[in-house]
Design a binder for these strands. Structure first.
Lengths: 116, 116
DNA sequence: CAACCATATCGACGGATTTCAATTTGTTGC
DNA sequence: GCAACAAATTGAAATCCGTCGATATGGTTG
């Protein structure tokens, strides 16, 4: 269960049917903060950007270490955080791991700001 | 100059006129990360939420310490981070400091995700 | 099986972040 | 001026985060 998936189930169970706008509960705030924490690092923003900008829509770790000028373990670490947040999808084919944007995930994250 | 204002001037000077989508530069990524860093804390999300939910659209520090169960210096610290990020506006009237959402700031932040 | 390659994980280090208690600043009212 | 109050700042402690080197895992190829 990624952070964004957890948030979507929260919405189902919460109270946004009519018009009342109670402030964010501590629990909801913590869940949303997980997503923004994943976005709160310049190198992770660049990873998302590079994956998004690529022709094929996907990239492997070896394509990402050079433009970021970071070691391979560090890039793997950042990618894991983005996957755990529900922003990236990871597919292993052979020796390589290909990462792609989860469809709609960035829009969902943007929506978290609109519904604060 | 807040983080969001800096980002808006970046847009003016950058290359988004036609269609090419070069990946985020290190500098751009760092600027955007500043905004998401401000959003990456559950207590700060709650502060934004409480200010937004309030009738008058503004709140002072003394209104915010109790619902967050944090000390006054800590709340002041979080509010300063949100002001520096360009998300909140601070207006001092008498002894009290009133904080309100900067109009459009949350939308701008959401837009940063759409244009990665 | 053995060598190799891409990726993931581990352990550690340095720097940033969150929080609080104590103090300071600045304003109001006596 | 002085007492009282709201807010900001300071300093310190605990925790968290980003990074790296070393190592482990797992698939591919000879």
């Amino acid at each position: 269960m990624t952070a964004l998936q957890t948030l979507e189930s929260e919405v189902d169970a919460s109270c946004c049917t009519t018009s009342g706008k109670p402030a964010l509960s501590a629990k909801e705030a913590q869940q949303r903060a997980l997503v923004f924490k994943a976005l709160a690092d310049p190198n992770r923003l660049r990873l998302l950007s590079i994956v998004k900008a690529g022709e094929s829509g996907e990239a492997c770790v070896c394509d990402l270490t050079e433009p970021l000028d970071l070691g391979q373990p560090t890039v793997s670490h950042h990618l894991k955080i983005l996957v755990d947040a529900g922003l990236l999808h990871r597919e292993k084919r052979g020796t390589w791991a290909y990462f792609s944007l989860v469809p709609g995930a960035l829009d969902d994250a943007a929506g978290l700001l609109a519904t604060l």
